[in-house]
């Protein structure tokens, strides 16, 4: 199973930003995601491919349902602080989350039926390692100090999962920009898709553009 995307929300970024800024954000995401993919590959012993990063405008409110409508999800959220603030979210359909946990726990495929404590811990650690690698690369590229909070994990249908996250749930009062990369874990029998979302606060974008010297 893969997470379906809302096609309407995928290309709005171009209308709000100059192409130079979009290019800069895509490059920032590419550097971060490249390092994160290497980390995920080491963690799972699997070849990982990544998509070309997408810069999206997400409507106000809870944005995860826009990205993952109609599927049960696992979301690992971390808060970013330091020179720029915002959030990172690692998002998978629940079956993909189970397969990833099995990979990390070196179990046979299909032997884990539900996300118990150990499986959830593995997925939190996957989110932590992805975000850590992503932000380490960004901090070097942007010459910024960046920190992360401990991960919070939520499961269920997207709206329910967000409620579980409580105060940590990613939401916005106005349209927000979201830099998104899709990961593909190549397995013999299936590809697992996961999304990594970098959701900088509005002020963080200006700091990013200053750092890469784009007006």
């Amino acid at each position: 199973m893969t997470i379906r995307r809302d096609a309407q929300s995928t290309d709005g970024g171009t209308t709000l930003m100059s192409s130079a800024r979009l290019d800069a954000l895509r490059e920032v995401a590419n550097i971060g995601a490249g390092h994160a993919a290497t980390a995920l590959s080491t963690l799972t012993g699997t070849r990982i491919m990544i998509s070309v990063p997408m810069v999206n405008v997400v409507p106000p409110g809870d944005f995860v349902p826009e990205i993952a409508p109609d599927v049960e999800i696992v979301a690992v959220q971390m808060t970013m602080s330091g020179d720029i603030s915002g959030q990172t979210v690692f998002l998978l359909a629940t079956p993909a989350g189970l397969r990833l946990a099995e990979r990390m726990l070196r179990r046979k495929r299909g032997t884990s039926q539900s996300l118990g404590q150990l499986e959830q811990s593995a997925l939190k650690e996957a989110g932590n390692i992805l975000a850590g690698a992503y932000l380490t690369a960004l901090s070097e590229f942007l010459r910024m100090a960046l920190m992360l909070s401990p991960p919070s994990l939520a499961t269920g249908d997207p709206a329910n999962a967000l409620r579980t996250l409580g105060d940590h749930a990613p939401r916005a009062d106005s349209p927000i920009l979201c830099v998104e990369t899709e990961f593909f874990l190549e397995e013999p029998v299936e590809s697992l898709h996961g999304f990594f979302l970098l959701v900088p606060d509005q002020s963080a974008f200006d700091a990013i553009f200053r750092a890469v010297r784009v007006d």
Binding site: A133, T136, S139, E140, A145, L146, L148
Partner: peptide
């Protein structure tokens, strides 16, 4: 042992 490998950290 950390996922954050930033030089400053």
């Amino acid at each position: 042992c950390s996922a954050m490998g930033q030089q400053a950290l």
